[in-house]
């Protein structure tokens, strides 16, 4: 038995499938390789897979991670090749290796956001986001499981934030908490900024670029 970590990208159109769909894609890709894997016990056995924190539907990623238990030992580059042969376009394995840390040690996610719109809009977005970040708290309204609204401070979940203009696009590098204790979807922050700007933009994109541990080292 060998536990290995698979690091993969989710880019292009496939970003429009959900986290559960990605899990299914991997299960089926493994089944198509006919490499034996360890299964969970019980009436409905599933491949033992552990994924990094779910990526929002619509976001791309360069750093997704999945731990799998193989029945036998395999050459890691063979596994990488085989999986890339069998995975749907847009899900691409970059690395297969023995994990150093558990997936639990992921504490932050780093995202690259791209915001589109008119010059005026982009200026306003830039200033508004900087202004919000300079405050001690950023209050947003969330809803609980029963749909009842409550106020929540998201400032403390943003560990670093940088934003700059690059040609026609605003580029933001944002690191947010995605730990077992709390997590923030950058969408919540973007929507907060948008709600405070009177004019509309032309959409935005997000890419998850890195996972970071609690000690701020990069998670691999």
């Amino acid at each position: 038995m060998e536990k290995l970590r698979i690091q993969f990208n989710k880019t292009g159109d496939i970003r429009f499938i959900s986290h559960l769909d990605v899990m299914r894609c991997f299960s089926r890709a493994f089944a198509r390789t006919s490499i034996p894997l360890r299964y969970t016990e019980g009436f409905n056995p599933k491949i033992k897979m552990r994924f990094s924190p779910p990526l929002s539907l619509g976001y791309e990623s360069w750093c997704e991670v999945l731990d799998v238990e193989f029945v036998d030992k395999y050459d890691t580059s063979y596994l990488e090749y085989e999986l890339n042969e069998k995975l749907p376009a847009g899900l691409r394995v970059n690395d297969v290796s023995k994990p150093e840390f558990g997936i639990d040690s992921i504490y932050y996610s780093r995202y690259l956001l791209k915001v589109y719109g008119s010059d005026d809009f982009l200026d306003r977005f830039l200033h508004k986001s900087k202004e919000l970040l300079s405050q001690n708290s950023i209050m947003v309204t969330k809803s609980d499981r029963r749909g009842r609204p409550f106020d929540s401070d998201i400032r403390k979940l943003i560990s670093s934030f940088n934003i700059f203009r690059h040609n026609d696009v605003l580029v933001s590098d944002i690191t947010v908490e995605t730990s077992n204790f709390a997590s923030l979807n950058p969408k919540v922050f973007v929507e907060k900024v948008l709600s405070e700007i009177p004019i509309q933009g032309e959409g935005w994109d997000a890419v998850r670029t890195q996972f970071i541990k609690a000690d701020f080292d990069i998670f691999r």
Partner: peptide, 16 residues
């Protein structure tokens, strides 16, 4: 458009 609809995965194709 895909960003504005439910279950956009319905429309992307490119399946294995």
């Amino acid at each position: 458009i895909l960003k504005n609809v439910q279950k956009p995965g319905r429309y992307i194709g490119k399946e294995v």
